[in-house]
Design a protein around this nucleic acid. Structure first.
Length: 848
RNA sequence: GCCCGAGUGGCGGAAUUGGCAGACGCGGAGGUCUCAAAAACCUUUGUCGAAAGACGUGCGAGUUCGAGUCUCGCCUCGGGCACCA
C-alpha cells in the first residue's frame, strides 16, 4: 500500500464525508427494517441563534451512541428538530422589525448547517419544526382530545404573571420565585386561564418513577419532590355561632398529616386571601386589622413571602370553630404563613406538634397544650391520665415534641404518635366512623397552566361564544393558523388583531371570538419525540403502529435543567395519549442521561453578557469537528460539568493525528484477504492481538454504559500498543492479517466519535468500499483477551511486599508456594495464620 | 428543615462484584532530531526520603486477611424542594 502517510487534513476530509453522507441513505431510519430498533434522542434545541457548546456536547454524546448502535446491528432512529415557538423570536422580531417566523426559520437553517458541519448522523428527512402548521395542528388536536376528556379546562384563579414577559407562567416555570426565562419576579394576578389536569396523573407520575431504572436518581428525586405526595386526613370543624361555643351547621375542613395531634388544637388558621375569613370579619371590629394584614401580604413578593425563617403575622377574626373530638372551641386566626392553594386552605393550629404553629402561639400568646411526650419524661406520668383538663403551657422546653406518646388525648392517650403512627391511624379511623373526617392524599403538584398571552406560540383551538360559552374548534378546521402579518414591532398582539379573533360560533353560528391565548411552548416539546416516528402523517399526529415500532426512546440525552419541566410534562402527555388509545406504553424515555454543563476555563457559565462564550466554530475551524467531538467526550464523564480547556483540544488533536499515522502504518502491511492464525504470531504479535481484545471489550462495555471518556482511553491504549508493535517489529516481519485486524479495530472503535476520520481511513487506508457504519462492530472475546502469564501482588498483612509473575492458570497451592518464597524476609520467624489466594489478583499472607 | 449527588496527584479524571489506588490524558522535568524553532518521538512524573522504607482516596471510628468501594458518626461542596400543615 501507500509508502507515504498522507497528512491529516481535517477540513478536507470532513467536507468530503459530509457531502457523501448527505447524498447517502446511511442514516435514514427504515420503518420496515427487521433489525432490532434503537431510538437515540437528544433534546431538540430552541433556535435562538447558532448552536453553542452545550448543544455540541449534547449531540456529540447522542451521535456517538447512535452511530455505535447502528454498528451493533440496530436499526437506529436518530432524529432532530426544533422547539421553534417561544418568546425570544418575538423579542427579536420586535427589535429587528422582522417577523418572528422569518427570524426563527433563518436560525434553524444556520443550526442545521452547523449540525452537518459537526457530522451528526441525523435522519434529516424527519426534521420536525414545532412552528410548522403541519406540526402544531396536532398539538391543537391533542388539546381538543383533552378538552373532551375533561383534562383541559378554563378556570379563574390567582396566577403568576411575569411583567417583563407579559404573560402568565406555570408553577414549574417559577424557579426560585423568579421567571425561568427572564428572572423577573412574577406578580399574582386573578385571571381566567387554561389548564391541563396533570394532577389527575399525580399518583401515576409518582409511582412510575420506580419503573425508570435507567434514570439518574437525582432527577427522579426532583420529580418526587415536585409532585410532593403527603398522606393525611381531612377533618371537619364546625364553625361556632357568634357566642363562640355553639356549633353551627357550617363545616370548615382542614387537611393535616398529623391527625394524632387533634387534641392539641388550640387555634385555627385561615390564609389572608381566604374569602371565608373576609366574610367572618366583615362589619366587625376585627375587619380593619384583617384588611391591613391582607394588604401587607399582597405587597410583598412571592420571593419574600417564602422562607421558613420569616416572622409570622396574624390577626384574630373574633370567631371560633369547635374541635370535633373534644368539643372545645378554638379561635380562628388569619395568618400569613397559611397558603390558600394547598390542601383545603384551612389549617388546625397545633403548637405542640408543629414548629410554625409553636412560633405563632408564642408570638400571640396562645395556649400550648402538651400532647406528646417521651415515656421517661415526668410530664408523661403527670399528664397521661388527664382527660379533659387541658393543661397548657407547662414548660416551654417541653412544649414542642413531634415524636413520642400521646398525653391528655382522651382514649388515644398512650398511643405512639408522629407521622404515619398508630395514633394517626386510630384517630382517622375514629373520625371516619363518625363521618367527620377521612383519610386523604394531598399533592403539591398543581394543574399545568398552559395559556400564554403571547403571539409566537400554538393557538388554543377554542372559541368563546356569548351564548354557548367555550366551544372547541371543529377538528376539520384545524389547524387554527397563526397569522404571519402581525405588526409586532408596533406592539400589536393577537388579542388586538381582529382578522385572527373574529369568527363565528361553530355551534350556533353567531359572531364569536377566538381565544387569543397560545399554548405554553412546553406543550410542543411534550410530544415531538412521538412525531419523529411518523413525521409526515397528515391524518393523525402519528400512527400507533409506527410509534409502537420505535418508542419508547431508548436513550434520551439532555440538560438537567429539564428535570422537572419538560420531563414531567412529557411523561404526562404520554400517559394521556396512552389513555386515548394512541399508544401502548407508560413511559416515553427508558434511559436518561443528563449531560453536565460546559463552562469557561474559570468555571463560570458561558454567556454573551460575560463575553466568555467559546463558539463551536472557533474549535472546528483550527482543529476540525472530529477533534472537537473527541475532546468534548474525553474531557470528563458525560454527566459532569467541565471547564473548557484549549489544552484538552490540542491533546485530542495530537491523539487523532497519532492514531491516523498508526493506522496508516499498520495499513502498510495490512491485507484483508489473509486470515489470521494466532498460533503463528510472534510474541509481540500475540501480545498486540491479546491487547486488542482486552481493550476492545473495555471499549465496548464502556459504550454500553455511556462512559465515553474511558472508551476513548481504551482506544488510546490500543493505539499506544500498536505503535509499540510497529517500533519493535520490522516491517517485513509484521503479520499482514494482524495489522489489518488491529487497524480495523482502532478505526471502528473510534468511528462513533470521530466519524470523518474513521470513514476516510476505512476507505483510503484499509481499502473498504462500504461505509464503516454499514459494517458490524468488531467482535472481541474474553478468551483471546486472557494473558498466559500475569503479575500478581503478594501481600503480608494486607501490605504489598512483592510482585510475582505466574502462569494465568496456576493452581492455588502453586501461587501460595511462589508467593511465600517471594516474601520470605517479611514472614521469617512469624506464624502464618492464614493465606488468602485470589487467583488472578493477589496472595495475602497473614503472618504474625 | 427535608430529599438527592459528590469529595481521589499540580489539573481533567480511572479503578463493573471489597483484592496491586492514580489507567488514559493535560501540565511539568530530562533527552533525541534541528543552525534554531515548531512538529514528532523516547524517558520520567502521588508525597516525604539519598536509599531502605514510610505515608497516601474530606475527617473520626468500625467490620474484614484486605476498604476509594461496606457500616456508623461528622465536615465541606453542588443540586432540588421548602411557612406544603
Amino acid at each position: 500500500m501507500a509508502n507515504e502517510i498522507p497528512v491529516y487534513d481535517a477540513e478536507a476530509i470532513e467536507t468530503k464525508w459530509q457531502e457523501e453522507w448527505d447524498k447517502s441513505d446511511t442514516f435514514k431510519a427504515r420503518d420496515e427494517s427487521d433489525r432490532p430498533k434503537k431510538y437515540v434522542l437528544e433534546m431538540f434545541p430552541y433556535p435562538s441563534g447558532d448552536l453553542h457548546m452545550g448543544h455540541a456536547r449534547n449531540y456529540s454524546i447522542g451521535d456517538a451512541m447512535a452511530r455505535q448502535a447502528r454498528m451493533r446491528g440496530f436499526e437506529v432512529l436518530h432524529p432532530m428538530g426544533f422547539d421553534a415557538f417561544g418568546l425570544p423570536a418575538e423579542n427579536a422580531a420586535i427589535k429587528n422589525k422582522t417577523q418572528a417566523g422569518a427570524w426563527t426559520y433563518q436560525n434553524m437553517d444556520t443550526a442545521v448547517a452547523t449540525m452537518k458541519r459537526m457530522g451528526f448522523s441525523y435522519d434529516y428527512d424527519r426534521l420536525v419544526r414545532t412552528c410548522d402548521p403541519d406540526y402544531y395542528r396536532w398539538g391543537q388536536w391533542a388539546f381538543l382530545k383533552m378538552w373532551e376528556k375533561g383534562l383541559a379546562y378554563r378556570a379563574t384563579s390567582p396566577v403568576n404573571w411575569c411583567p417583563s414577559c407579559n404573560t402568565v407562567l406555570a408553577n414549574e416555570q417559577v424557579v426560585d420565585g423568579k421567571c425561568w426565562r427572564c428572572g423577573e419576579v412574577p406578580e399574582k394576578r386573578e385571571l381566567s386561564q387554561w389548564y391541563l389536569r396533570i394532577t389527575d396523573y399525580a399518583q401515576e407520575l409518582l409511582d412510575d418513577l420506580d419503573k425508570l431504572t435507567g434514570w439518574p436518581e437525582n432527577v427522579k428525586a426532583q420529580q418526587r419532590n415536585w409532585i410532593g405526595r403527603s398522606e393525611g386526613a381531612e377533618i371537619d370543624f364546625a364553625l361556632a355561632a357568634e357566642d363562640g361555643v355553639t356549633p353551627t351547621d357550617r363545616l370548615i375542613t382542614v387537611f393535616t398529616t398529623r391527625a394524632d395531634t387533634l387534641y392539641g388544637v388550640s387555634f385555627f388558621l385561615l390564609p389572608p386571601e381566604s374569602p371565608l375569613a373576609a366574610e367572618l370579619v366583615a362589619g366587625t371590629e376585627y375587619e380593619e386589622a384583617f384588611n391591613e394584614l391582607k394588604k401587607s401580604v399582597e405587597q410583598i413578593s412571592s420571593v419574600d413571602r417564602q422562607g421558613s425563617d420569616r416572622e409570622k403575622h396574624g390577626v384574630f377574626t373574633g370567631r371560633y370553630v369547635i374541635n370535633p373530638l373534644t368539643g372545645a372551641p378554638a379561635p380562628i386566626w388569619v395568618a400569613d404563613y397559611i397558603l390558600l392553594d394547598y390542601g383545603t386552605g384551612a389549617v388546625m393550629g397545633v403548637p405542640s406538634g408543629d414548629q410554625r404553629d409553636f412560633d405563632f402561639a408564642r408570638k400571640y400568646d396562645l395556649p400550648i397544650p402538651p400532647i406528646i411526650a417521651q415515656k421517661d419524661d415526668p410530664l408523661y406520668e403527670e399528664l397521661k391520665d388527664e382527660q379533659g383538663l387541658r393543661v397548657t403551657n407547662v414548660d416551654w422546653d417541653h412544649a414542642m415534641d413531634a415524636e413520642g406518646y400521646l398525653i391528655q388525648s382522651g382514649p388515644f392517650t398512650g398511643m405512639k404518635g408522629g407521622k404515619h403512627s398508630e395514633a394517626v391511624d386510630a384517630i382517622i379511623a375514629h373520625l371516619s366512623e363518625r363521618g367527620i373526617g377521612r383519610s386523604k392524599v394531598q399533592f403539591r403538584l398543581r394543574d399545568w397552566l398552559i395559556s400564554r398571552q403571547r403571539y409566537w406560540g400554538n393557538p388554543i383551538p377554542m372559541i368563546h361564544c356569548d351564548c354557548c360559552g367555550d366551544v372547541p374548534v371543529p377538528y376539520e378546521d384545524l389547524p387554527v393558523r397563526l397569522p404571519d402579518d402581525l405588526d409586532l414591532g408596533a406592539g400589536e398582539t393577537l388579542a388586538e388583531y381582529a382578522p385572527f379573533y373574529e369568527t363565528t360560533c361553530p355551534k350556533c353560528g353567531k359572531p364569536a371570538k377566538r381565544i387569543t391565548d397560545t399554548m405554553d411552548t412546553f406543550t410542543c416539546s411534550s410530544w415531538y419525540y412521538l412525531r419523529y416516528c411518523d413525521p409526515h402523517n397528515d391524518q393523525a399526529p402519528f400512527s400507533k403502529e409506527l410509534v409502537d415500532r420505535w418508542m419508547p426512546v431508548d436513550n434520551y440525552i439532555g440538560g438537567i435543567e429539564h428535570a422537572i419541566l419538560h420531563l414531567l410534562y412529557s411523561r404526562f402527555w404520554t400517559k394521556v395519549m396512552r389513555d386515548l388509545g394512541m399508544l401502548d406504553f407508560d413511559e416515553p424515555f427508558t434511559n436518561l442521561l443528563c449531560q453536565g454543563m460546559v463552562k469557561d476555563k474559570n468555571g463560570d457559565t458561558m454567556s454573551k453578557s460575560k463575553g466568555n462564550v467559546v463558539p463551536p466554530s472557533s474549535v472546528i475551524g483550527p482543529y476540525g469537528a472530529d477533534t472537537m467531538r473527541l475532546a468534548i467526550l474525553f474531557i470528563a464523564p458525560s454527566e459532569k460539568d467541565f471547564n473548557w480547556d484549549e489544552e484538552v483540544v490540542a491533546g485530542a488533536n495530537r491523539f487523532i493525528k497519532r492514531a491516523w499515522r498508526t493506522v496508516w502504518s499498520l495499513a502498510e502491511t495490512a491485507d484483508a484477504n489473509v486470515s489470521l492464525d494466532v498460533a503463528k504470531l510472534d510474541a509481540a504479535g500475540k501480545e498486540l492481538y491479546r491487547r486488542m481484545h482486552e481493550m476492545g471489550i473495555k471499549c465496548t462495555t464502556d459504550f454500553d454504559r455511556a462512559q465515553f471518556n474511558t472508551a476513548i482511553s481504551a482506544v488510546m491504549e490500543l493505539v499506544n500498543d500498536a505503535s509499540a508493535y510497529l517500533n519493535k517489529v520490522r516491517i517485513d516481519k509484521r503479520d499482514a492479517a494482524l495489522t489489518f485486524v488491529v487497524a480495523r479495530a482502532i478505526v471502528a472503535m473510534l468511528s462513533p466519535i470521530c466519524p470523518h476520520w474513521a470513514e476516510e481511513l476505512y476507505h483510503e487506508a484499509l481499502g473498504f468500499q462500504t461505509s464503516v457504519y454499514d459494517e458490524p462492530w468488531p467482535e472481541f472475546d474474553e478468551e483471546s483477551a486472557k494473558a498466559s502469564t500475569i503479575q500478581i501482588a503478594v501481600q503480608v498483612l494486607g501490605k504489598v511486599r512483592a510482585r510475582i509473575d505466574v502462569a494465568a492458570d496456576a493452581p492455588k497451592d502453586e501461587l501460595e508456594a511462589v508467593a511465600r518464597e517471594a516474601v520470605t524476609k517479611f514472614i521469617e520467624g512469624k506464624t502464618v495464620r492464614k493465606v488468602i489466594v485470589v487467583p488472578g489478583r493477589l496472595v495475602n499472607i497473614v503472618a504474625k
